[in-house]
Amino acid sequence: MSSTTVTQTATAESHVELRSADDGVLNWNVAKTEGLHVIPTFTDKEAERTWAKQHMAAAFRTFARLGWADGASGHISLRDPVNPEWFWINPYAKHFAQMKSSDLVLVDHHGRPVQPTPHKVNAAGFIIHSSIHRARPDINAACHMHSPAGRAWSSFGKGIEMLNQGFGGIVLAEEEGERLADALGKDYLNLVLQNHGLLTCGSTVDEAAAYFIALERACQNQILTESAAANGIEKKYVGKEEAEYTCRCTSTPGCAYMQFQPEYDLTVELSGGKVLE
């Protein structure tokens, strides 16, 4: 069989458009990301709903694999593509590692289920996410977990220092959820909640999940660095110009979306496709 025949067969089976030898495969031209950081778009809102829910369920299983499942605590929300006044959230006391697309609960901003469901929803989680989705129409997804490093660093009430180039109690009152939405303001997507944990947002679940992974790892790096600094090792900071350049190049919805795709693909494979059900 000739190499040409092999290429044609592979293309027909996988529907992958192969690059020519003259095209180049390096991704270093970060100023030109057409075709590199592509978030799927849909004309069929029902199809978009199915796709988004599958990615949401995969985010839960990814967080479980990374060790961030926390009993009945922790939640992700997703603005419904069909009706933006509704949002999806995880069922109460369902282990992240067992989450499937069909387990997710669709609620309105009064906490009423839009579809019949056997599940309950975490009240604190509902208040947080409902407040964010009402205040920020540009945010379609939000993640809140009590991950180890995030919870530990949140005890200091400080933000993250620019050290590398990587990425008040149970909320049962509506005003607490509104305070979180106010803290996000009009532009921010990530919060360190003092003595509580982390909250990240995005235009897709993938973006919010990628930011959460990055922020948790930044907290872990901060704690390790503080431990070394306490023993007399001087910290060196990334320069303002370098930090701003990296932010311009990588802090885009498309870049964050792509950052989560390896985790998504692995999660689907490890679940044998069950996460998509």
Rank of each mutant, 00 (worst) to 15 (best):
M162C: 11
I213D: 07
C201P: 00
E161V: 00
A209I: 14
D206E: 14
Q165S: 09
D182S: 12
A210R: 11
A181I: 13
V205R: 01
A214C: 11
Q194R: 13
E175W: 13
I160M: 14
Y211R: 14
G166M: 10
G169Q: 12
K158F: 03
V192I: 15
N190E: 08
N190C: 14
G185S: 10
A173D: 15
S155F: 00
C201A: 09
I170A: 13
L172G: 04
I213L: 03
N164A: 14
M162F: 07
L180S: 11
G159P: 02
T200R: 03
G202V: 05
E216S: 06
D206R: 01
Q194W: 11
E174K: 01
D187H: 15
L189K: 11
Q194M: 07
A210P: 13
D206H: 04
E216L: 09
A218Q: 12
F156V: 14
I170S: 12
K158W: 02
V205S: 00
E176T: 10
G202C: 04
Y211H: 12
E174A: 08
A214Q: 10
G169T: 12
V205T: 13
G197E: 02
Q165Y: 02
L163R: 06
G166Q: 09
T204G: 02
G166A: 07
Q165N: 11
F212D: 02
A183N: 05
I170D: 03
A183C: 08
Q194V: 13
M162Y: 09
L199C: 03
I213M: 04
A183Y: 01
T204C: 05
L172D: 06
A209K: 12
G168E: 11
G197W: 01
A181V: 12
L163N: 06
D206L: 01
L172S: 10
R179Y: 05
G157P: 04
F156R: 09
E174M: 05
A208Q: 02
A173R: 11
A183M: 09
G185R: 10
T200F: 03
G177Y: 00
F212A: 02
Q194I: 08
G159H: 08
Q165L: 15
Y211N: 09
R179N: 09
Q165W: 00
T200S: 14
A183R: 06
E207I: 03
R179M: 13
L198E: 02
V205F: 01
G185K: 08
C201E: 01
E174D: 14
F212G: 01
F156P: 00
Y211W: 14
F167E: 13
L189G: 04
A181W: 11
A210M: 10
T200W: 06
G177A: 02
G202M: 03
A181G: 06
E161N: 12
T200G: 02
S203G: 09
G202W: 03
A173M: 12
G157I: 03
Q194F: 13
A210N: 12
L198M: 08
H196P: 04
